[in-house]
């Protein structure tokens, strides 16, 4: 009896289909990609396009209806002092939160990437991810209680007899206020707490990919630890840091809940968008406000690329 080297073509629709897809890798790829691409193209890019279009319309001041002729008037309104204030305030806050997150995240990520093994690594992931499991609102309200005038922080300051320090901090111009929970410092603390994991995780991933022998090679060539950090570890971790900063920066730019719960009465971009498209009914101005973070992130990425942050990828 002879054994056939190749089996006969198999019967059945599914088998036929699987054989067809095996022979045509292009068709296989198309089948996999078309649904997500449709989703991305229509729902995601489509809504973004609708947003962009809306920002070029205007609102009739008397009737409150939308005038569909193309105009830059909404962008003109952005540059009015009150609105520009909101933009600048939000960008400064996002920048401060990003810098603080990077500074806090680096040692943690570095330890996790280079030193933590086995059990400690599991503890690290758990510690970083656990805050993400609980509700964002719960965390923010918890912080409000921590930072409130009669809250935990002031109680601790009182117990330790350092109320003077807390009062001194709160007396700082601009960032201070009647209590931590109603000052920019409070908003900043909560933002930094909430977005920190989004900085730690990409940073840790990029540090993990820095081969240990590059550090050894740098030392071998005569570099002190500080030089090794400056010339080898930091440049190679930069893509991760940029990735993390995209999260912390853009999440801060768009958030409208944290500044509403913790902080003063001054608006951030997210709150302005909420008010313009809700209470004020000015959809074009809301859209123009929304374009600001998109434009800023675009500029930011372009700048990061120009400085060679992605060269190590």
């Amino acid at each position: 009896m002879s054994i056939a080297a190749l089996p006969a073509p198999r019967a059945g629709v599914l088998r036929g289909l699987s054989d067809f897809l095996l022979r045509r890798p292009g068709a296989y790829l198309a089948l996999l990609l078309v649904p997500p691409l449709l989703w991305l193209g229509i729902i995601y890019l489509g809504s973004l396009f609708a947003l962009l279009t809306n920002s070029f319309f205007s609102v009739d001041e008397f009737s409150g209806t939308i005038d569909y002729t193309l105009t830059l008037s909404s962008y003109g309104q952005l540059f009015q002092l009150a609105n520009l204030d909101i933009v600048i305030r939000t960008v400064l806050m996002a920048a401060a939160v990003t810098l603080a997150s990077a500074a806090l995240a680096f040692p943690v990520a570095y330890y996790a990437a280079r030193y933590a093994k086995g059990r400690m690594k599991a503890v690290f992931y758990l510690a970083v991810m656990m805050p993400l499991w609980s509700s964002y609102l719960v965390k923010v309200y918890a912080w409000k209680l921590i930072l409130a005038k009669e809250g935990i922080v002031s109680w601790i300051a009182d117990t330790l007899g350092v109320t003077v320090v807390l009062d001194g901090v709160l007396a700082l111009p601009v960032v201070g206020g009647p209590s931590l929970s109603t000052s920019y410092i409070g908003t900043f603390l909560v933002f930094t707490y909430v977005w920190l994991p989004y900085m730690i995780l990409p940073l840790q991933a990029s540090l993990e990919r820095v081969p240990g022998n590059l550090v050894e090679a740098s030392e071998d060539l005569g570099a002190h630890p500080a030089q090794t950090f400056r010339h080898v570890i930091l440049p190679l971790a930069l893509p991760g840091m940029i990735a993390g900063s995209i999260f912390t920066f853009s999440l801060t730019l768009g958030d409208y809940i944290i500044p509403q719960i913790v902080g003063g009465s001054n608006l951030f971009i997210g709150q302005a968008v909420l008010i313009q498209q809700g209470t004020a009914g000015n959809i074009p101005l809301a859209a123009a406000f929304t374009v600001v973070p998109v434009a800023i992130m675009g500029l930011y990425l372009w700048g990061a690329k120009r400085t060679g942050a992605f060269d190590a990828l």
């Binding site: 081969p211 590059l214 570099a223």
Partner: peptide, 17 residues
Amino acid sequence: YARAVNTVFQDYALFPH
């Protein structure tokens, strides 16, 4: 970094950036 020796590594360890 304070030794007057240098190493050629097995997988070269060139700085990719």
